[in-house]
Design a binder for these strands. Sequence first.
DNA 1: CAATCTATTGGAACAGCGTTCCATTCATGT
DNA 2: ACATGAATGGAACGCTGTTCCAATAGATTG
Lengths: 223, 223
Amino acid sequence: MIRKIDRTERRSDALSRERIIAAAIEILDTGGEGALTVRALAAHLATGSGAIYWHVVDKNELLAAAADAVIARVMSDVAGGAKPREAIRAVAIGVFDAIDAHPWVGAQLFREPGRPATLDIIEGIGRQLRVLGVAKVAQFDTVSALVHYILGVAGQNAANARLVAPGTDRSAFLSSVAAQWTALDPARYPFVRQMASQLRDHDDRAQFLAGVDLILAGIDSAR
Amino acid sequence: MIRKIDRTERRSDALSRERIIAAAIEILDTGGEGALTVRALAAHLATGSGAIYWHVVDKNELLAAAADAVIARVMSDVAGGAKPREAIRAVAIGVFDAIDAHPWVGAQLFREPGRPATLDIIEGIGRQLRVLGVAKVAQFDTVSALVHYILGVAGQNAANARLVAPGTDRSAFLSSVAAQWTALDPARYPFVRQMASQLRDHDDRAQFLAGVDLILAGIDSAR
DNA sequence: CAATCTATTGGAACAGCGTTCCATTCATGT
DNA sequence: ACATGAATGGAACGCTGTTCCAATAGATTG
């Protein structure tokens, strides 16, 4: 807690929690979740594992801190004072885009609820619900629905990102999934098969927003 | 593919993919996700790891198959021909309860999209949307919203289940989380702090259904 | 300036994991 | 009775997160 207060730093290349988190984010972004090992991190920082563990308690904590950092940046970016509906859409899209850019954040948000990242999202959306005039008794259920939806898409997107072979492009991937869907048993999966054609050229981001709008419409109709 | 066709089984205690999956489910239910190791599984089945890998390609595949088995049972249970709204609620609640009983399924559903388990859920809900009269162009977005919401709650519930120390009961856990929320900075988290009191004695299942109803209301208003 | 002392470092060592390998066993078809 | 190939079980491999600890660096003290 009182570390480093009024003390000139020891050397310019000194380790610090911040530098470690930044390095972790870089590795995660470059190589995905699997690439973040303590050894890789140590090599990246030109140090040993013991030095890292002096600044960071756990690999879990490190991942959580990295995700918190990414989400905190997003939430401060969208803080502007737009109309409540637009503000909610902005928060949602901000989280969506952040996870699109850093799929590991999606998996992490999921694994550890109740952390700053999740709280920031709840807060950002909840405030707007008050402005929107959602009844007090309904606010908790409503924010819960929106946040769970956002996190659901987040996690699923992250999982998909993990599935796509690094080389292949998006439309090739979608086509192959659509082909699989089409090959399903027509008796058992009539609906899924019918969706296959729409899957091929749908836009994840637009579909995500359509879901947000659907929930917002539900909120309106309940008022 | 043609294994074991018209062949008497070799011995009564023979291994099989099915027995391995059943044992895995038992271990997962008893000890949680962390308890399923290949060694533990081998010990449970009184065999070696090599024998297991003869029947199962991967630990991932094993987990996926276990989750598929649990979800398939749920989906066949709720297959009944109720009215579409009720059928959708039944599917949702079925998945919710299954994940409440087997938290590891929640995590797994999440990690590997496009597997039978997820397809079953999409199919089960999608069919009802057609019956409900959702416009063809909107069906994909709508089923996506519902499924992502369900999976979002699923994953989050699973994560929470992992957080609750095995001994503690639910209300004690909720109280402690509520206390943490109350202790947050009032300037930064006014909304979250206000939710704390509702958190303490809310019902996850009811809240989940409220979310489903919110989305259903959104669907209605768009028709 | 020399001595001391503590915060920090880097790498060796440990236990446990998923997976592979392979000599051995078993039930069958000839 | 023999040969064959499916099935077994356990040793071994490479990797992981984490702990431990002797060595160091830089501020503080005498």
